[in-house]
Amino acid sequence: MARDPYDVIGVARTANAEDIKKAFRKKAKALHPDANPKDAKAQDRFAELNNAYELLSDEAKRKSFDRGEIDAEGKQRFTGFEGFGGRPGGTRGGAPGGDTIFETFSFGQEGFRRSGNRKAGGAPSSDDFFDILSGMTGRAGGSFRGGDPFGAGGEPQSGGEDVTLTVRVPFLDAARGATQRVVLPSGEAVDIKIPSGTRDGHRMRLRGKGKPGSLGRPTGDAYVVIAVEPHPAFRAEGKDVRLELPIALDEAILGGKVRAPTLDGEVELTLPAMTASGKSFRLRGKGLASADGPGDLYVTMRIVLPEPSADLEGFARVLKERRKTDPRQGL
C-alpha cells in the first residue's frame, strides 16, 4: 500500500502549494539515484516521491485525496452505497422522502451503518431491517437494484490490478534516449519514450494500462521497469561512465593521438609518452544525462602487447638489464 503523500514529501496537510514544491525539491535532491549510486532502493524511493508530488501538485487530486475519495495512488476508494432505487438518497419502494427508512447505507470497519431519516413513528422493525439486507445481498429472492457490489466470495469488488513489465533496453538507447514498443498484458502495443540517461531499474508509470476493475471500477496502472543491457565497452557508475581503451605498446611508450568512442561519437585523445596501463583520462560532460547536469566519461588505458617476435624478445631483455626499479616495490 502506498504511503501518505504528505508523509512521503514531509509536509503538513495545511501546507500550501509553494511549501510542497520546496519540500519536494529538497527531498528530490537528497533521494536522487545519482546521489545514491550504491543504494539499490534509491530508484524506488525517488519514484515514490515523484508519485506523491504528482498527486499533491494537482489541486483537484489533492482535494479528492483530502476528502478521502481517492487513495495515495490516485485510485478511487470504495465508499459504500449511496442508496436504493438507482440514485443517491433513494427511497424504499419508491416512497417520497418523508417515508424513507434509510436514505444511505455503507459498510465500514464498524459493519453495517445507516444515515438519514426514519419513517414517521419511530425506528424500523426487524422485518424492515432484514428486508433491506436480503435486498442488498440477493438472498430470499431479493435483489439489489443498483447492482451487486459483492463478488461470489462476499467481498467488496476492488479496482483493477497494477501490472509490472520488465523491458530490456540496449545500453546506448538508454544513454542517448530512444522510443521502444511495449506489448501490454491486454495485447495492446504502446510506444514508450526512454529518456536519455535512463538508469537500470528505472520505473515508468502508464496510467490506466493495467488490468480493468470490476463493475466499472478504475483500471489499474502498468509499471514498466527498465533493464539496461550491458555494453561490451561502456559501464555506468551512477551518472558517470567508464571505458577501457586498448592501446598498443608503442603508443604507450611514445605517446601520440588515439581515437576513443564516447556515447555520442568518437573523440581524439592525446596520450603523453610513457602512458602506463591503468592510466585514466576524464572527459567532462561525456557521461549520462542527469537532472543536475551530465556525468563524466573516464577512459582507462589498457596496454595490448604485440604478437611475439625475436625483436620484441630482444627489446624486453635490454629493458630487463637496464631496469633499476621494482614495479612491485611497496606492496
Rank of each mutant, 00 (worst) to 15 (best):
L269V: 04
A60R: 13
G85F: 02
T198C: 06
D34K: 00
T198Q: 06
R207E: 15
G74W: 04
G256M: 02
S57F: 07
E82D: 08
P308Y: 02
P246M: 01
D44M: 07
A291L: 13
A252D: 02
D326G: 15
R176C: 08
R139H: 14
G68L: 03
D311Q: 12
R92K: 06
K279P: 04
S277T: 08
L49C: 09
Q109H: 10
R13K: 11
R87C: 11
N50W: 09
P124R: 07
D71Y: 04
G287Q: 05
M301R: 07
G177A: 02
A273V: 04
R45I: 01
T300E: 07
G159P: 02
G216N: 01
R199C: 08
G238M: 03
E313M: 11
Q109L: 13
G142R: 02
I192F: 12
Q157I: 14
L133V: 15
S126W: 10
E188Y: 05
P327F: 03
T270R: 13
S143D: 09
G68F: 04
M204Y: 09
A40G: 02
F144P: 00
E73P: 03
K61I: 04
I70G: 01
G293Y: 01
N36Q: 09
G10I: 01
G287V: 13
G153N: 15
P218M: 07
E229L: 10
Q329R: 13
G295K: 00
P232N: 08
R25W: 11
Q43V: 11
G85L: 00
D34S: 09
P156G: 09
D148C: 13
R199S: 12
L215S: 10
A289Y: 04
